[in-house]
Computed example of a mutant assay.
Amino acid sequence: MTKGPLLLICEHASCAFPPEFGDLGLAEDVRRSHVAWDPGALALTRYLGDALGAPLVAGNVSRLLYDCNRPPEAPDATPAKSEVFDIPGNTGLDAAARKDRADAIYHPFSAVVESAIAQVNPAAIVTIHSFTPIYFGAPRAVEIGVLHDADTRLADALLAALPGTPPQVDRNQPYGPEHGVTHTLKRHALPDNRLNVMLEVRNDLIADDASVARIGALLAPALKAALAQAGQGAAQ
């Protein structure tokens, strides 16, 4: 089978709370805030998919119900607190309730990712996220994070392909593998030695269509160049 160039994954694409899950005891403003999803991430993923001719898989419920970038055994897969917000509906969940969430959300999402991989046979997997400019009251200087786990090939090539600041681009910021954020890469890319990287974009930089287009126009050619460069290295 001929490999496709890449598969895009956006785990935190939605802030939806389907009726069967309730609202976790949260006010609407919290359910629409950055703790519930990654604002702008799906729009950016779609832009990159169009620009690079790549298919995408996107989550369709809030990460507060289940964070699809976490394995079922991770405590923050169903967080009792996210940043400064308590999540009442996740407090004191027993093992059976956590399993029910994973069965309802995580395992179906993972099955869709695995099906897409089987169909596309991508050379690379790229996950797209956004992050808040202010975290626990402190401003963040980083604007685009290029994250990786043990396999640095695509991250190295992408960092080399991106121009200098602005925007400020940093490796493994504002999170890194020590924070458990590379689960999707570890599960779906590393076992098959697929090139992989996780992108974190500050959400004020992708707040509307025009800003998504600006960041997308920066990232798309850089990703294309990085895929070519890392792919050459992988083939040697």
Rank of each mutant, 00 (worst) to 15 (best):
G4D: 08
L8C: 12
S14D: 00
A16E: 00
P19V: 02
P19A: 15
F21T: 10
D23E: 15
L26A: 14
L26P: 05
R31Y: 02
H34V: 07
V35Y: 11
D38V: 03
P39R: 03
R46K: 15
D50V: 14
A58E: 00
G59F: 00
L65C: 01
P72I: 05
E73G: 02
P75Q: 00
P75M: 01
P75R: 04
K81G: 00
S82R: 08
E83P: 02
F85Q: 15
G92N: 03
D94L: 01
A96V: 15
R101S: 05
A102F: 03
A102D: 04
D103E: 14
I105F: 03
Y106R: 08
F109I: 00
F109K: 00
V113S: 11
E114L: 08
E114S: 13
I117P: 10
A118G: 15
Q119P: 03
P122L: 13
I128V: 12
H129C: 11
F131C: 13
F131D: 03
I134K: 11
Y135D: 09
Y135K: 13
F136D: 03
G137Y: 12
R140F: 08
R140M: 05
E143P: 13
D149A: 14
D149H: 12
D149E: 10
A150G: 14
D151M: 07
D151C: 11
A155M: 08
A155R: 10
A155C: 08
L158D: 07
L158H: 02
A161P: 04
P163R: 09
T165A: 13
T165Q: 12
P166C: 09
V169H: 05
D170R: 15
R171H: 09
G176V: 10
P177V: 12
H179F: 02
V181E: 07
T182I: 01
L185V: 15
R187D: 05
R187L: 12
A189G: 08
A189M: 05
P191N: 06
D192W: 01
N193F: 14
N193E: 15
N193Y: 02
L195D: 06
V197H: 02
M198R: 03
M198I: 01
D204F: 01
I206M: 06
I206V: 14
I206Q: 01
A207C: 10
A207P: 01
I215P: 03
A225G: 12
G231H: 12
A235K: 11
